[in-house]
Design a protein around this nucleic acid. Structure first.
Lengths: 151, 151
DNA sequence: GTAGGACCTCAAGGTAACTTGAGGTCAAGT
DNA sequence: ACTTGACCTCAAGTTACCTTGAGGTCCTAC
């Protein structure tokens, strides 16, 4: 059995079939269709779905993941090197996030109790020391262009 | 001028007035009302709002933040020590999240290209299913939980 | 004492990432 | 051939976290 039905892919990845259909609607995943209209996935789809999930856990949106997946070669099954390159591109982001969290951990205790949290110049609320300059709120954790959840 | 109107609190915290009203509906923030029905905040509200934002960026839900805020003393303005205790309670969580991210960073490159990503037992693919079920948010921040059933 | 910006409420809208349900079809085992 | 579980589509619902808009009121500076 070289192809997988949606239920099999779901079982192999732990991702609900409804989510797999949703990913297809969103252009993150593609499937061949049988004559009867059912989805058939190549085995490479397992890795693709796994990649999507790992990326999500790192905090990327589906939009960003779609973009990342767009850099994979079309027309052939991605090689191990393709995947490696893709995931290696996350490293600066991961480093940045780890950094931000460490800064937070190391300064929070000394900072949150003091008056500085009420100031827009607080080091935690404004990492780049651009104290309140035309800014709109705390964003020490987020690189430029990102926003807190839901905002 | 010892009290703040909503616009002033918004300006001081960088949080939209609509969000401040929303926080009040959700029980995270309280305000005295003028005879005319307008909100008036004590200066301590600035710190409270800042706390809410920092907590959100660390990945806590408003629900969790409300719970945390619930441990503050009622009836008096929280002291520096109160805030310190509250923020110190985050430390284990922050440590755990930093740990998880570091593990991810250090293993991703060697892992994602290999076959293990296709297995539910992969150390990186260890979605805390509570998070998956509980809507949006940064999942990467979640501490390593148990394996999915059967993994 | 009045102009008008700041404020009020309530309902509805928006986004991300899905899930659920209704109503119907496909395909594999016997 | 038949049964039955897996599959299909499409619309609507869900959760978290807000924003926007309509319609109206407050309050402060001139």
């Amino acid at each position: 059995m070289t192809e997988l039905a949606i239920g099999a892919l779901s079982a192999r990845t732990g991702v609900a079939a409804s989510a797999l259909r949703f990913y297809e609607d969103e252009g993150l995943l593609h499937a061949r269709r049988t004559a009867g209209g059912q989805r058939r996935y190549p085995r490479a789809a397992i890795r693709r779905v796994s990649f999507i999930r790992v990326a999500q856990q790192v905090g990327l949106s589906l939009e960003e993941i779609r973009t990342a997946l767009g850099t994979l070669p079309e027309g052939r099954t991605p090689t191990e090197a393709d995947w490696r390159r893709l995931s290696a591109s996350w490293r600066p982001m991961l480093d940045a996030r780890i950094d931000a969290l460490e800064r937070l951990r190391d300064r929070l205790d000394g900072c949150i109790g003091c008056g500085c949290l009420s100031l827009r110049s607080c080091a935690l609320l404004n990492p780049d020391d651009r104290a309140g300059a035309a800014g709109s709120g705390p964003r020490y954790l987020l690189p430029d262009g990102e926003r807190p959840p839901g905002a």
